[in-house]
């Protein structure tokens, strides 16, 4: 599964999930809730870019 990076530098890695927001390990970026935001800076999903 792909990693996605926020402009602030935070990287969403499905293998880690996002415990702070109750996102389970193994959740693909595409499956994150629409109201999920970057845990570091609060940016919305639309600002993230997929890492090559």
């Amino acid at each position: 599964m792909d990693k996605w990076e926020c402009p602030c530098g935070y990287i969403y890695d499905p293998e880690e999930g996002d415990a702070e927001s109750n996102i389970q390990v193994g959740t693909a970026f595409e499956d994150l809730p629409e109201d999920w935001v970057c845990p570091k800076c609060g940016a919305e999903k639309e600002f993230f870019e997929k890492l090559d």
């Binding site: 402009p7 602030c8 609060g42």
Partner: peptide, 11 residues
């Protein structure tokens, strides 16, 4: 804190 880069703190 990177919260200052986005809405988390700027709001």
């Amino acid at each position: 804190d990177p919260c200052w880069i986005g809405p988390k703190c700027l709001r």
